[in-house]
Simulated scan of single mutants.
Amino acid sequence: MANKLGAMREKLVDTLELPAEITLNVPKITILAKKEITVENHKGVMRFSTTELVVNTSLGALTIKGDNLEIAFVGGTTITLRGNFKGVVYDNYEEI
């Protein structure tokens, strides 16, 4: 039942051309080359070091790996990270 409701919600968002990150409560990830990543609509920083950032999202933990990572901006549910990125992956993701 939850999958049907989610599928219907996604179809409605697509049909009405609404911003999915707001209406479906999913993160929006913007990558600018290999130098800057912005994650919007996250649910908090779980772990941070100069080689890894882990943030909680509605889809599970999002891990960003790289070198010389630094947090450039944090505000509300948005975080911007700078550095040399090597990968972005969702840990333990299971579709709702």
Results as ranks from 00 to 15, higher is better:
1 M>R: 07
3 N>Y: 11
4 K>S: 06
7 A>T: 04
7 A>Q: 12
9 R>T: 03
9 R>P: 01
11 K>D: 12
12 L>D: 01
12 L>I: 11
13 V>I: 15
15 T>L: 13
15 T>A: 04
16 L>D: 05
17 E>L: 10
17 E>G: 14
18 L>G: 07
18 L>W: 08
19 P>V: 00
20 A>G: 08
23 T>D: 02
23 T>L: 13
25 N>T: 00
27 P>V: 05
27 P>L: 04
28 K>C: 05
29 I>Q: 12
33 A>E: 14
34 K>F: 14
35 K>S: 15
36 E>S: 15
37 I>D: 00
40 E>Y: 05
40 E>W: 08
40 E>N: 13
41 N>R: 08
42 H>P: 05
43 K>F: 14
43 K>R: 13
44 G>F: 14
45 V>Y: 06
46 M>N: 13
47 R>N: 07
48 F>I: 05
49 S>R: 06
51 T>H: 10
51 T>A: 05
55 V>L: 11
56 N>F: 01
58 S>E: 11
59 L>K: 03
59 L>A: 08
59 L>W: 09
60 G>L: 14
61 A>H: 14
61 A>D: 15
62 L>A: 08
62 L>W: 00
63 T>E: 15
64 I>C: 07
65 K>V: 05
67 D>E: 15
73 F>L: 14
80 T>N: 04
80 T>I: 01
80 T>G: 02
81 L>I: 12
82 R>K: 11
83 G>W: 03
86 K>W: 04
87 G>P: 10
87 G>W: 01
88 V>S: 06
90 Y>H: 07
90 Y>G: 03
92 N>V: 08
92 N>Q: 12
93 Y>Q: 08
95 E>Y: 06
